[in-house]
Amino acid sequence: MTFLPDAGYVPTAEDRASLDAWFAEYDEQSAKRNVQSMADMAVFPLNLVSDDAAGNGRSAQWDREQYVATMTQVMGDGSEEITFESTRTPVFLSPAMVVVFSDSTMTTEGRSWRLRYADILVRRDGRWAFQTMIQGGWGDNL
């Protein structure tokens, strides 16, 4: 039996702080429904992985235009306040790649929804950007 070398990357305090700051900014832009700013925080083409209403796994790639159009439709007109409370578990694969598992509660107009999703982010030129979104229930939009 061959054992692979220990390949786990241990993030630095700066890695964690920069990732936390990225998510704080993304959540702020989401709460404001500032879809263009949200798109500025992505790498396109953006990979999406989900499932559809029939229970089939789906995947797609979106360009910026499709991301903006879909997120604008999904997020509504912005007349109601949205808040997010999230617990995130990052798994750093390297200093430039991280998979983040999120358990989040989105609240608007007194109603709350629990969400579970994962994002893959890459660091380019010192800045994080999301490159893959993974969440159930989006497949019919793909």
Rank of each mutant, 00 (worst) to 15 (best):
E25G: 13
P90W: 01
M97S: 11
R58T: 14
A21W: 06
T2G: 14
W113F: 14
R116V: 12
E81V: 10
A13G: 13
R16P: 02
M75C: 00
T2F: 11
G110E: 09
Y117P: 02
R127C: 12
E81W: 06
N141V: 07
A96G: 01
Q73G: 04
G55R: 00
V43P: 01
L121W: 04
A24G: 08
F84Y: 14
D140T: 01
F3G: 14
V91C: 01
F23I: 07
A69I: 06
A31T: 07
L46S: 06
E65D: 12
A24T: 12
T83I: 07
R116K: 14
N56H: 05
R16M: 11
Q66R: 14
T108F: 02
R33S: 04
A60F: 00
P5A: 13
S30V: 01
G76K: 01
L48I: 14
W22T: 05
A17E: 10
A42V: 07
T87C: 01
R111S: 15
P5I: 12
G110A: 04
D103L: 08
D52E: 04
R64P: 01
F92L: 10
V35Q: 02
A39M: 02
A96Y: 14
P11R: 09
N34E: 07
D27G: 14
R111P: 00
